[in-house]
Amino acid sequence: MTLWLTVAGMGAVTYAIRLSVLVFVSHDALPAAARDALRFVMPAVLLAIILPAVLYVGENQTFDLSIGNQRLAAACIAAAVAWAAKNVWLTVSTGMAALWLLQWAW
């Protein structure tokens, strides 16, 4: 029973956070500086998710900034494709193919 209460609490805080500005606080009520800063949420969150996923690899998630890091190499290839082609599926398929190829070749 207490476990169900815990999960309900987890859901309540999560939903409250997601509702915050969408429902409870008006976006217009935010200070201008804050609204200005929100323009950078996308670039910030995307690279903050990408980099650890590419640099901490293996079963023990160890930091590996070397040419032997297959995920890093595949991500660099995918980044070049993303930059040139601006196409999500092409980026994902090239990156996955590069990773599989590197894993197979090793």
């Binding site: 996308m42 670039p43 995307l46 690279l47 998710i49 990408i50 996923a53 590419v54 991500a75 995918a78 980044a79 993303a82 601006k86 196409n87 999500v88 980026t91 994902v92 990156g95 996955m96």
Partner: peptide, 8 residues
């Protein structure tokens, strides 16, 4: 991460 890369 690959999809996020394409969106970045």
């Amino acid at each position: 991460p690959l999809t996020f890369l394409a969106l970045l």
